[in-house]
């Protein structure tokens, strides 16, 4: 599972991001190698979501660069980055409530124009989540939390991502579903998709990750292999002390 030595898929260099006049991310450096699963940990308002938004181009950094697949994409819009192979499962899933499950999955494949491959994509998603096939004509807003999580994952996978970003996949789910969710993350990861998982649930996130970063008020304070982080004194006190 380790991907040491693989080339970088994503690299953030010296990122400074502001909201208005407030400095959110300070000199952030981070990378994800091909086929790797990386966790980004941190408390409330530590800048995790901003990091993801910066990666996707939803927020423009004032300084620093974002590179994806060896290409600098800092000035590119979100649409371009997604076409290059990023996809995201957003925080709180953010499904299109008044649209059907099928339409939601279609939106995930919005930028994929070849319709021949489309069917295989659907098959792949329906194999992973058979329930979605059953519910395909139901409105997404009427599904339960766990089902919505599946739609969100399926929707992201429809984009055929090289790098899948996950924003708090455990948020708002019952413990049993959290576990199931992380199983699926692992499954998707094993199919060769690199992942950056943003989590508050450090224990769970590090247990499946190759490496981890810890963010606090916009600064990286710890980084290293996941198993080392799991042993780290400060981190245990802050997050794992239950």
């Amino acid at each position: 599972m380790s991907a040491n030595g693989a080339p970088d898929l994503l690299r953030l260099k010296g990122i400074d991001t502001y909201y208005g006049e407030i400095h959110i991310l300070e000199n952030l450096n981070l990378n994800v190698r091909e086929g790797e699963l990386v966790s980004l940990l941190g408390g409330n308002a530590s800048g995790k979501s901003t990091t993801l938004k910066t990666i996707l181009g939803l927020v423009q950094p004032r300084n620093g660069s974002v590179e994806f697949r060896g290409e600098e994409v800092t000035g590119r819009n979100t649409s371009y980055r997604i076409r290059q192979g990023m996809a995201i499962v957003p925080e709180n899933r953010r499904l299109f409530g008044p649209m059907t499950v099928l339409e939601n999955l279609e939106m995930g494949a919005y930028l994929i124009r070849d319709t021949k491959g489309r069917k295989e994509d659907f098959d792949r998603v329906y194999t992973l989540f058979p329930l979605l096939h059953e519910r395909r004509s139901q409105l997404a807003g009427t599904l339960s939390g766990g089902e919505q999580q599946m739609v969100a994952m399926g929707r992201a996978l429809m984009a055929r991502p090289k790098l899948l970003l996950m924003d708090e996949p455990s948020m708002g789910l019952a413990p049993i579903l959290v576990e199931r969710s992380f199983e699926i993350i692992q499954q998707v990861h094993q199919s060769g998709v690199a992942m950056l998982v943003v989590e508050q649930n450090a224990n769970m996130a590090l247990s499946i990750a190759d490496r981890g970063y810890v963010l606090s008020t916009g600064r990286l304070v710890l980084q290293g292999p996941a198993n080392e982080l799991l042993q780290h004194e400060d981190l245990r006190k802050a997050y794992l002390g239950r």
Binding site: I22, I24, V214, S216, G218, D234, L235, K237
Partner: peptide, 23 residues
């Protein structure tokens, strides 16, 4: 635990307190 004054602490929600400094 003693912290050097300049390093941010982990897991402490000090964002609100530090907003002024970040403005």
């Amino acid at each position: 635990m003693e912290q050097p004054p300049d390093t941010p602490r982990i897991g402490v929600d000090e964002w609100v307190a530090s907003v002024e400094g970040k403005r």
